[in-house]
Amino acid sequence: MNFILWIIIGLVSGAVAHRVLNSRGGFLGSLVVGLVGALVGGELAHLFNLNVTGSIIDQLVISTGGAVLFLYLWRKLFSKT
């Protein structure tokens, strides 16, 4: 069940990150961005000792923030323009 929840959170946070940065991304793109964003956000939360209770809202916020940061950095590093 946790695996399905991770996928749903990844899809939502990836889709929000694509929308925030006005980027294109399909199902798989949103999933990858969201899951990598969850890892990035989780590590940043741990690094800054943020008190995260583990609720679904906390997971969505951390994951979405990490996804936006990841997608922003990805575009800055690998943009051709």
Rank of each mutant, 00 (worst) to 15 (best):
N2V: 05
F3Q: 13
I4W: 13
I4M: 13
L5E: 12
W6I: 00
I7K: 09
I8S: 08
I9S: 03
L11D: 03
G14Q: 03
A15M: 11
A15W: 03
A15I: 04
V16W: 06
V16G: 03
V16T: 15
V20P: 01
V20L: 12
L21S: 11
N22F: 11
R24C: 02
R24M: 04
R24Y: 11
F27N: 02
L28C: 01
S30A: 14
S30P: 01
S30W: 00
V32G: 02
V33Y: 01
G34Y: 05
G37I: 02
L39K: 06
V40G: 09
G41Q: 11
G41E: 09
G42Q: 04
E43N: 12
L44V: 13
H46L: 10
L47G: 02
N51R: 13
V52R: 00
V52C: 02
V52K: 02
T53V: 07
G54E: 05
I56M: 06
Q59L: 09
Q59A: 13
I62V: 15
I62M: 09
S63C: 08
T64W: 07
T64S: 12
T64C: 09
T64V: 08
T64A: 14
G66W: 10
A67E: 04
V68C: 02
F70D: 00
Y72S: 05
Y72A: 11
L73D: 01
W74D: 04
W74Y: 15
K76D: 01
L77I: 15
L77Q: 10
F78H: 10
F78Q: 05
F78Y: 15
F78N: 09
K80R: 15
K80A: 10
T81K: 13
T81Q: 13
